[in-house]
Amino acid sequence: MGGTRPATGGKTPRGSVPERLLDAATRLFAERGFEGTSVQQVVTAAGVTKGAMYHYFGSKDDLLYEVYARVLRMQTEHLVEISSRDASVSERVHAAAADVIVTTVANLDDSTIFFRSMHQLAPEKQLSVRAERRKYHELFRSMIEQGQREGVFRDDVPADLIVDYYFGSVHHLSTWYRHEGALTGKDVGRYFADLLLAGLRPQE
């Protein structure tokens, strides 16, 4: 699963049926847009039948939801593990800040689709995505607040604003990052995390 999924080139796609459908949908939604992609195009690219698709996904809307939700679930699992490490709060925040960059870059198509097309989801699915994102942001914020209480991070800026500032940068990655560029996802993750920690140091 990555931001540069290759076309199948006429070969039978590999993986489970849901994986093949999601990979095909991700690639086509990124290339043609959600509205410009038909269910038939998705199932053809995935090498399955419509019946097989509807066994796993009730609609094209469900595919769009899952394209982003699966990345968010993975990022949340990473954050839960990072936040529970036996490490300083600075180390945990740095690792979490870098991880969300690396995983976003690795799944750049998914992020592009989310910010371009998620408004087309049914209202209840939009609410579900927002609720899951809020859980992620709240856990990230809790580490910032811990650092502020311990005097490791500056406390003159609200933790909510720090989280919004950082993730605003993360959410714009899909507008400028290119896999063929000079920087890898790990490079960008390290630089962004370094900048965040530098900005969090208490003012002298």
Rank of each mutant, 00 (worst) to 15 (best):
D156V: 04
F114H: 14
M118N: 13
D155R: 12
V105H: 00
R141A: 14
A95H: 07
S90F: 09
V71N: 01
L72N: 06
V152Q: 08
H137G: 06
R141L: 06
D99N: 05
E138N: 11
S128H: 11
I162V: 12
G147N: 01
R130Q: 14
T112H: 11
H137F: 13
S142F: 14
L127A: 15
N107E: 03
E81Y: 09
I101P: 05
E81T: 10
V157C: 07
T112P: 10
G147H: 01
T103K: 05
P123S: 11
S117L: 05
E81N: 13
P158S: 06
H78K: 04
R116M: 12
R149W: 03
Q126A: 12
S84L: 00
G147S: 01
L108Y: 06
H119N: 09
R134F: 14
Q126E: 07
A97K: 00
S83A: 13
F140H: 10
V89P: 12
T103H: 02
R154F: 07
R134W: 11
N107S: 05
A131H: 09
K125A: 15
A95R: 05
S84W: 00
S90P: 04
S117N: 14
G151H: 03
E124A: 15
M143Q: 06
Q120C: 13
I162T: 12
L121A: 11
A159E: 06
V100T: 09
V152R: 07
I144K: 01
D160G: 13
E124T: 14
K135S: 15
V93S: 05
A159L: 08
A87M: 06
R85W: 02
P158C: 05
